[in-house]
Amino acid sequence: MAVTHDTTADRALAEVPGRIKKEQRALPSFLKTTGLALLFPMLLLLIWEGTVRFELVAGHLLPAPSEVVGTIGAMAADGSLWGHIGITLYRLLWGFFWGTLAAVILGSIVAMSRNAETMFDPLIQAFRAIPSLAWVPLFILWLGIGEPSKVTLIALGVFFPVYLNVVGGIQSVDRKLIEVGKAYSLSQFQLVRRIILPASLPSFITGLRSGLGLGWMFVVAAELLGASQGLGYLLVLGQNTLAPNVILASIVLFAIMGKLTDYALKKIQTRALHWQDSLKT
């Protein structure tokens, strides 16, 4: 270094080790939280595995975690796993699609027109009060035991949360923003496209996420009630063949799939709503 002291360079030099120290501290803290979060589940799994291994519980009723993973692995190896997952996803997405479509159409009509609201909303609310599973016998009678009755049931489950959020979202659009649109003499259609739609998007996506959750619930219900393939069918199969490992494998797969689909929606939500004040950028 030169004889004269360059103070800024000095400061920069002094800063560098500090920053490295900070990073070193940051990394273990990240590991620490992940470790802490994993500790308890891992411990549970170990205890579970242990109690089964040392025959403290009956292995034919509660298979060890390793056996559950093994079952999934075997199904993946013989290819049957993909068929089950595929058909379940197909039913879910199809039901989700129709339920959402109906909810968006009916919801926007009800939210936009007071007359439509007085006409349709009480009836829709009355239908909401019926536990959706009560429709199952009727759907099977009308639509048979095949795909249509299942998709209809799932669509029905998806419909209500999406509908409620569409109506709520549109009705709570800031009147002051609509006034801005009116001041620029936008037509009714332009008001919808340029202000009402984007402003009600957050509520709509929230509705989609809770709709998806209910969709998964109704997939299980639909497949329990008569299917020859699918994750829900595996539950029935496991029960009938006294194979708890198959039941647990199905449950684990449901957990993974549910989490994955919700994660995808959450990604879309963050992407589409990055302008929202409440979301971190």
Partner: peptide
């Protein structure tokens, strides 16, 4: 309302999106 007017409100009333 006519497009020939400009209006400035008490609040900015910007579209947040």
């Amino acid at each position: 309302p006519s497009g020939e007017l400009g209006i400035i409100f008490q609040e900015p009333r910007l579209m947040p999106w």
